[in-house]
Simulated scan of single mutants.
Amino acid sequence: MMSRSATRVARSVLTHVGPRYFSTAVSRGGAASDVAALGSYVHGGAATFVHGPAKGPEKVVVTWMRVPVLGSRNASTLALGEKQQEEEKKKVQVGSDGGAAAGGGGNGNKAIVSYWGVEPAKVTKEDGSEWRWNCFKPWETYKADLSIDLKKHHAPVTFLDKVAYWTVKALRFPTDLFFQRRYGCRAMMLETVAAVPGMVGGMLLHCKSLRRFEHSGGWIKALLEEAENERMHLMTFMEVSQPRWYERTLVFAVQGVFFNAYFLTYLISPKLAHRIVGYLEEEAIHSYTEFLKELDKGTIENVPAPAIAVDYWRLPKNSTLRDVVMVVRADEAHHRDVNHHQTTLHRYSLSGTRTEGSTRPDRISLI
């Protein structure tokens, strides 16, 4: 009774699992000869007999394959005919060739670089040459305003202003101690953090606009564009200076702490959060000014401008690193003005309407 139950269980298991992991064939002859034949036909395999419901001397031969589980579909020669197996191999080969073509290789097939499998539209520059950047498009490029006032400073008056000012001053001390005069690496590392406030502020204002069913007054887009601009600063300085392993580790720690700290600060007081960013941008202007001084002294080599910077800021072809630092500093000055200006609008709603008792104009124009 026990042996019959065990046989039924074994048959049930082999019925469900067998097609995936084993190759089965019906043997109608001597057991030893069949095992030898199967052993020679299936390389690296071992054969075993399992008694089944076959009549007479018929037995089920199970071939145990020494192959990975993922390759079990192509492992058994008995399960698939030779013709079918060749077709499977051709399909695999065609799939690998298609993957190579998608990466730019293959047999001259067109590469489709899109998640949806749709070939992207061809974008060209004004001179007709092909646009090679995916992180930004020609209509997102611009010429920086170098005439912006770099010496503008917001004197801390209120308590929150003083908290923001001295917080930024306190953060600058360890930064100066760590980077010292390595301004190229300093700029690259700080841009990994500078792009956080705009994204956090834009995200929270976006959610606030959804909750209150009201317009944003243009501030969501302004803050997200600020975050994107800071990220492009990072992409540019990555071409100039490569971070070391411990500096990459530092980015994880600093960005993680700063993101959460700024997120909570923005929830508690958006005015304080924007004032902190305004003072951070003032420090960035100072750092890039020192960067320019080192370039003029010859301490830092004035290498040609990276191609991504030439296209993003519409710089001349013969631009240098000094020209890049100039436009980046102008961007930081713009962010400084926007964030200080946003702090003064703390008592206004997102849509820019005038609050009760205010003498400010009804319409607010973004800087």
Rank of each mutant, 00 (worst) to 15 (best):
G45C: 13
A46N: 12
T48W: 07
T48Y: 11
F49E: 12
F49M: 11
V50P: 00
V50Y: 03
H51G: 10
G52Y: 02
P53Y: 13
P53A: 15
A54N: 03
G56F: 05
P57F: 09
E58I: 03
P68H: 14
L70I: 02
R73S: 08
A75R: 00
S76V: 02
T77D: 13
T77P: 01
L78H: 14
A79K: 13
L80A: 12
Q84P: 01
Q85I: 11
Q85C: 07
E88V: 14
K91V: 12
V92Q: 05
G95C: 07
S96F: 13
G99T: 09
A100V: 04
A101N: 08
G103Q: 13
G104V: 13
G104Q: 15
N109V: 06
A111N: 14
W116A: 15
V118Q: 14
E119N: 11
K122W: 05
E126S: 13
E126A: 14
D127H: 05
G128S: 12
E130G: 00
W131A: 02
W131V: 04
R132L: 06
K137E: 14
P138R: 06
W139F: 01
W139S: 08
T141K: 08
Y142V: 01
A144K: 03
L146D: 07
S147C: 00
S147M: 02
I148Q: 06
K151T: 05
K152F: 06
H154N: 04
H154K: 10
H154I: 13
A155D: 06
A155N: 07
V157G: 01
V157E: 12
V157A: 07
T158G: 15
T158F: 01
T158Y: 01
K162R: 15
V163E: 04
Y165Q: 02
Y165C: 05
V168N: 14
K169V: 13
P174I: 07
P174R: 10
F179P: 06
Q180S: 13
R182I: 02
